[in-house]
Nucleic acid binder design. Sequence first.
DNA 1: CTTGCTGCAAAAATTTTGCAGGTGT
DNA 2: ACACCTGCAAAATTTTTGCAGCAAG
Lengths: 137, 137
Amino acid sequence: MAVPGLERRFRERGLRRTPQRVAVWSDFAGHPGSTIREAAARLQRAGIGQATVYRAVRALEEAGLIVRFAAPHGEVRFAAVLDHAHLLVCERCGHVEPLQECGLHAYEAELARRSRFRVRGHTLIVYGLCPECQESP
Amino acid sequence: MAVPGLERRFRERGLRRTPQRVAVWSDFAGHPGSTIREAAARLQRAGIGQATVYRAVRALEEAGLIVRFAAPHGEVRFAAVLDHAHLLVCERCGHVEPLQECGLHAYEAELARRSRFRVRGHTLIVYGLCPECQESP
DNA sequence: CTTGCTGCAAAAATTTTGCAGGTGT
DNA sequence: ACACCTGCAAAATTTTTGCAGCAAG
């Protein structure tokens, strides 16, 4: 799977671009909102060990290539990202939809000025009910 | 500790307002960005069992009274919230600062219209370096 | 009252680690 | 080359559960 910015992000972070790490990232990209457990089960069929999945998740998360978020029922789920992380999550069925823009850049700049933090990025998770789940009781 | 909206939020969700749950919420309010482990250690000294802390965290999270987020190194941390959750997190030292506004309401409305989700709320985590950590190498 | 919450300790599940090869750069 | 990554299985850690009594509404 050729992902434009991915290779660069690996290099920038000094991460080796191994097939396993690409596979883990791709799995989350293809199944946004998976738990580590679910991803590991799928990847294990491709011969990737459990420990490797955990190690890759940690590396990718520190590199900002995936994000972790709280899904309904306190579950920890992940989704692949390339730049900012903006997700729309259904609280009922757990469906995750990546968002394109967030209109937060102005706010971020304002915040950096007021807080004296050096702002590097942000994660925005919007919770709600997806169209399907609005139907069923 | 008398927290204005807290009692109402408990009632709205059908949660019993027990001393233990209030203690757990207050602990995260007083130590934003704690892990469950750290909170449990503090609360255990007050005679609150480990299992109770885990059960309270689940209940409070489902009620939207605390939020879970990913801190540096993949750690899962929590912070108390009353309404929206807007946090400024230092990636180096883990310091967490709650934010007041987020300027996202217009975006949320726009999003609801375009995505056909029924948007209920959101969590915004801004990552960066706090003033202290900008100094030290 | 009645239903749900708590504490304790044990059980289950998840995550990390040590080590002997591989592999990317 | 050589530092870093992987797989395996075991070890460590975290989270959940069963149960008897307590307590909130």
